[in-house]
């Protein structure tokens, strides 16, 4: 599995600890989810909702025109939804600033390697799979329009 370096590092962090500690790690990540920049603050309706997440999550994707076409990710999820925020934070930490080609190359089932199935449940993990699918689909759309 070829993952962008920051995402690979996160996957290793999760793999190295016990299921209970993985939950703690996810909680810490949820607290580190960057705040939405000013230009999206009042623009929730221009963002895409990830319906597969159990709590409301909005996502925006930007792709740089030049160079490696780096991808930038923006998320909005309520504080009462730490799991969803944690998933978003994994995406943000692991994929923000990465070249579009690398983001598109992330295997759709990469999240299985996080080993969260036992601690979080497979049903809840559907949200993270959907998040990646939507990120990729927005990256593709962005690339077409460039």
């Amino acid at each position: 599995m070829t993952l962008p370096a920051p995402l690979a590092e996160l996957v290793d962090d999760f793999a190295d600890v016990t299921p209970k500690e993985r939950l703690q790690l996810l909680l810490e990540l949820s607290e580190e989810l960057p705040a939405l920049p000013e230009r999206y603050a009042d623009a929730a309706d221009t963002m895409e909702q990830v319906h597969e997440c159990q709590s409301p999550l909005f996502l925006a994707v930007e792709v740089e025109d030049a160079g490696e076409q780096a991808v930038h990710l923006f998320f909005s999820a309520p504080r009462e939804a730490p799991t969803t925020r944690g998933f978003a934070s994994i995406m943000s930490t692991g994929l923000d600033g990465q070249p579009a080609a690398e983001v598109l190359a992330v295997p759709d089932d990469f999240y299985l390697a996080l080993g969260l199935g036992q601690a979080v449940s497979p049903l809840r993990l559907r949200g993270i799979a959907a998040m990646l699918a939507r990120i990729k689909s927005q990256v593709r759309r962005n690339l077409k329009s460039v």
């Binding site: 939950l23 996810l26 949820s30 159990q54 009462e80 730490p82 979080v120």
Partner: peptide, 19 residues
């Protein structure tokens, strides 16, 4: 949300996860 309890809960309350 499986993590919500851990962000803060009613004092003394225990957690039970349905999943």
């Amino acid at each position: 949300d499986v993590l919500l309890y851990d962000t803060g809960h009613i004092p003394g309350a225990v957690k039970l996860d349905w999943h």
